[in-house]
C-alpha cells in the first residue's frame, strides 16, 4: 500500500468508505448528501456503495443532530453532516444540552460515539451566515472533543479516529481546503490520534501556533521570514480539544516567543485560551508577550475587498512575528540575576 496525492474531500470520502466498510453501525445523516456526492464532493461514491447508510433528510437540523444522538445512544456510530458550520445554531440545544451532557448526567451510562461534521471558514464571499469559524463555542462546552485538520492526510486519519472514538467529536473542515491536495496513505488503519499536534516546519526563533486553513498562511509567512533570517516553527494543532500543550511547551522552551493565528474572530477566540495557558505554565520561558492574529471582531462581510480586510492574512502574521522578535532575549540576563540573588530571597520569591 502506498501514498498518493488526494484532495481533502477525496481523503474524507476514502475515510468514510473505509470505516463504513469496517463497521456496519457507521452511517451518515444530513441534507443533500446523495444527489451530488455531497455539496463539496465529500461523499463521492458512498451513496452507490452504502445506499441504506447515507440518509438524506428534510431540512430539520434539530432532528438531524438529535437523530445522531439517539442513534449513538442505541448502538450506532453516526456521522452527522451539518451542511455548513454556521447552521449549528439551529441545533444548539441538541449539541450543548444533550450531546455534550447525556453521558455525564447519566453518571457514565450513556455513550455517544458520534461525529458532527461541519464545514466552516470564510474566504468565498458567502457572507456572515455561511462563513463563520465557531470552534470556540464547543471548546467552551465540557463533554465535546473538537478537531480542525488542515492537511488531507489528517482529514483521513483524524476522521477515522473520530469515528472510532466513543465520545462526541465536532469535526470542522475548512471550506477552502476541499481541493487542497497532499499525500495520503492508502492504508486502512491510517489513524491520527486525537489530541496530538504536528510540527509543520521546524525553527528556533519563534513558534507560530495555528490550525485549519490558517496553517497555510502561517507556512507562507514562515517561508518569507526564513528569507529574512528568522526561523519560525509552525505547529498545526489539528485537535483543539483536548489540545497538545506538551508540544507547544516543548517548542516554546526552545524559541521563547509565541504567535497564535486563527481565522475565528479575536475576542473570546481559542487563541486567548492558548495564550492564557502559555502565560500560566511557561511565563519564565518567554522573552516577549504572546501575540494573537485573528479576524476582526465583526461578522464576515460579503464583498471580497471587505472580507479580505476582516480576515487575517500572512502579512498580519509577519507583523506579529516581527513585533515579538523586537523584544530582547531575557535568557542570559535572568540567568545572571539568579546567581546574584541571595538564597533567602530566592526562596521567598519562588
Amino acid at each position: 500500500m502506498g501514498v498518493r496525492d488526494l484532495s481533502c474531500s477525496l481523503a474524507m470520502a476514502e475515510a468514510l468508505a473505509e470505516e463504513m466498510e469496517r463497521d456496519p453501525t457507521v452511517f451518515i445523516i444530513g441534507e443533500d448528501l446523495t444527489a451530488h456526492g455531497g455539496i463539496f464532493g465529500q461523499f463521492r461514491g458512498l451513496p452507490e456503495r452504502f445506499p441504506d447508510r447515507i440518509i438524506d433528510t428534510p431540512i430539520s437540523e434539530t432532528s438531524i443532530v438529535g437523530a445522531g444522538i439517539g442513534a449513538a445512544l442505541t448502538g450506532m456510530r453516526p456521522i452527522i453532516d451539518m451542511h455548513f458550520a454556521d447552521f449549528v445554531t439551529t441545533a444548539m440545544d441538541e449539541i450543548v444540552n444533550q450531546m455534550a451532557k447525556l453521558r455525564y448526567m447519566s453518571g457514565g451510562q450513556a455513550k455517544l460515539p458520534l461525529v458532527l461534521w461541519a464545514p466552516d471558514g470564510a474566504g468565498i464571499s458567502a457572507a456572515a451566515q455561511h462563513s463563520q469559524s465557531v470552534e470556540s463555542w464547543f471548546i467552551h462546552t465540557p463533554g465535546l472533543k473538537v478537531v480542525a485538520p488542515f492537511e488531507p492526510a489528517d482529514v483521513k486519519g483524524l476522521l477515522k479516529a473520530a469515528i472510532r472514538d466513543d465520545d462526541p467529536v465536532i469535526f470542522f473542515q475548512h471550506k477552502r481546503l476541499f481541493r487542497w491536495t497532499g499525500p495520503v496513505a492508502e492504508h486502512h488503519e491510517y489513524l491520527v490520534p486525537l489530541g496530538k499536534a504536528l510540527i509543520k516546519r521546524h525553527g528556533s526563533d519563534v513558534t507560530i501556533i495555528t490550525y485549519s486553513r490558517m496553517t497555510y498562511e502561517c507556512l507562507e509567512a514562515a517561508r518569507i521570514l526564513a528569507q529574512q533570517g528568522i526561523q519560525a516553527e509552525v505547529i498545526d494543532l489539528r485537535t483543539l480539544k483536548p489540545f497538545d500543550m506538551e508540544l507547544i511547551a516543548e517548542s516554546l522552551r526552545k524559541t521563547r516567543r509565541a504567535v497564535i493565528a486563527h481565522e475565528a474572530c479575536l475576542t473570546g477566540g481559542f487563541g486567548a485560551e492558548i495564550a492564557a495557558r502559555i502565560g500560566e505554565e511557561l511565563f519564565e520561558h518567554l522573552d516577549a508577550p504572546v501575540l494573537r492574529v485573528a479576524a476582526k471582531d465583526v461578522p464576515i462581510p460579503f464583498s471580497p475587498v471587505l472580507e479580505k480586510f476582516v480576515l487575517p492574512q500572512a502579512e498580519d502574521i509577519l507583523n506579529a512575528v516581527r513585533t515579538v522578535m523586537k523584544y530582547p532575549s531575557r535568557a542570559v540576563t535572568r540567568a545572571c540575576s539568579i546567581t546574584k540573588t541571595p538564597r533567602s530571597k530566592r526562596r521567598r520569591s519562588g
Partner: peptide
C-alpha cells in the same frame, strides 16, 4: 434513554432511536 430537563428535548433523540432500530 433518560428523563430530560429541556422541554421538547426528547423528540430529536427518539428520532435517532427510530433510525437506529431501522438500520439494525
Amino acid at each position: 434513554l433518560g428523563a430530560n430537563g429541556v422541554v421538547g428535548g426528547g423528540f430529536p433523540i427518539i428520532i435517532g432511536a427510530g433510525f437506529s432500530i431501522k438500520l439494525r
